[in-house]
Amino acid sequence: MSEKIRLAAMDIDGTLLGKNKKLTDYTIEVLDRAAAAGIHIVIASGRALQAIPETLCRVEGIEYVITSNGSSVFSLKNQERIFEKDMTSEQIMMILDFYRNYECPMEIFIKGIPYTSEEYFRFPERFGAFGSAAEYVKTTRNPVKDIRAFAMEHKDEIEGINFIMNHMELKTEMREKLEAMGGIYVTSSVPRYIEISHGDVCKYAALKWLANELNICPEEIIAFGDGENDLEMIQYAGIGVAMENGIDRVKKAADRIAPSCDENGVARVLEEFL
């Protein structure tokens, strides 16, 4: 491995995983080889810890997982939350007050566990989640009867909130209002989501914290991503890599473009440094 690269950070959906949501043997082999060469392998996802694919958690070379768009960093070996930046109770109250005017599903993340309403959990197709997306909801979310009351009860320990959108016009309206509130981080990893965290949170901030803990400078980091929530991380890394299937904004900010997630793009670029 190049002496410059000491840490490789990578998104999951649309980056490590393609349309079939499976990690290929080739990618696992390259990640293990990189780790054996002394590179810290870090997953950086909008997912909560409980929603990280089991196949990824079993890859021996992966040490750390940045979750909930940077609200948490977990040591994968012992499942310990080593960095946390939850939303404040005031932010939660502000968002719940805003949410009174809308009927879209809501998800909340608490200590790595994602919760959502029973209706969305049972019938995700009603809200635009079909096929693998519907399966993802049913296998990773924990249903509660009254998600608003549940959020109120846990307002002091929420990592982040997702709103699930089935109509893009409504998403635009809600996002503009949320961003106008200030003090919160608003992003979108996939078109159906509005993702909200503390204003000091993003993948870049969590990655910077972890790099400082490991005494690694930005020039020694390579980062891979495809979506809006990967932008700051791509800009921070010494080598920012956007996937061919990524959005234009991320590709313009990147130092180079990798083959698509369906072509083992992460592994093919990372292997160049081996």
Rank of each mutant, 00 (worst) to 15 (best):
R175A: 11
R100K: 13
D156Y: 02
G46D: 08
V42I: 08
G70D: 06
I158E: 09
D32C: 00
F121C: 01
I216D: 10
A180R: 14
G131F: 05
E219G: 15
E54A: 15
M152W: 15
L23R: 01
L170K: 09
L76C: 14
N78C: 06
A205H: 09
F224R: 07
G18M: 12
L7C: 11
K22D: 13
F224P: 04
N212V: 10
E272W: 03
R33G: 04
K21C: 09
K4S: 10
N20V: 01
T55V: 08
P105E: 06
S68K: 00
I194Y: 06
A48F: 02
L207W: 11
I12A: 00
G61M: 05
E107T: 13
G14I: 09
A151M: 15
M174Y: 07
M243T: 05
T172Q: 10
I92S: 08
G199L: 03
F130S: 10
N166I: 13
F130W: 10
G182C: 00
I222A: 10
I41M: 15
E103F: 04
L170D: 10
I222V: 10
K77W: 14
K252T: 04
E103L: 08
A211D: 08
L96F: 01
D13V: 09
K208R: 12
Y64S: 04
I95K: 03
V250N: 07
E84G: 14
F121L: 00
I82G: 05
V65M: 12
N78A: 03
K85D: 00
Y26M: 05
R126Y: 12
T172A: 13
I92C: 06
I28G: 01
F74V: 09
I257M: 06
A34C: 11
A48M: 08
K251W: 00
E125T: 02
I66P: 05
A34G: 12
A8R: 08
C104P: 01
V269R: 00
E63R: 14
S117H: 04
T27N: 05
Y26E: 13
R249Q: 13
T172N: 10
D200A: 13
C57L: 12
E84K: 15
F98H: 13
R126W: 10
P191L: 08
G225A: 03
D255M: 04
D200H: 07
E107I: 14
F74K: 09
E54Y: 04
D156E: 11
F123P: 00
I43T: 11
E63S: 14
Y204H: 07
A48E: 02
I113G: 02
M168H: 07
D146Y: 02
K177G: 15
M93G: 15
I164G: 02
E103V: 04
N245R: 04
R6K: 15
T24S: 15
V30E: 01
K155R: 09
I164D: 03
E119F: 04
T140N: 13
E159N: 12
L214E: 08
A48S: 11
V269T: 00
E103R: 14
C217S: 14
K203R: 06
H167K: 14
E232M: 07
M152K: 13
N264G: 03
S89N: 08
A133F: 11
F150L: 05
E263Y: 11
E84R: 15
K21I: 02
A242P: 13
T140H: 07
T27W: 14
I216Y: 05
I82D: 05
M165T: 05
N69S: 14
M93V: 15
R33T: 08
K145G: 03
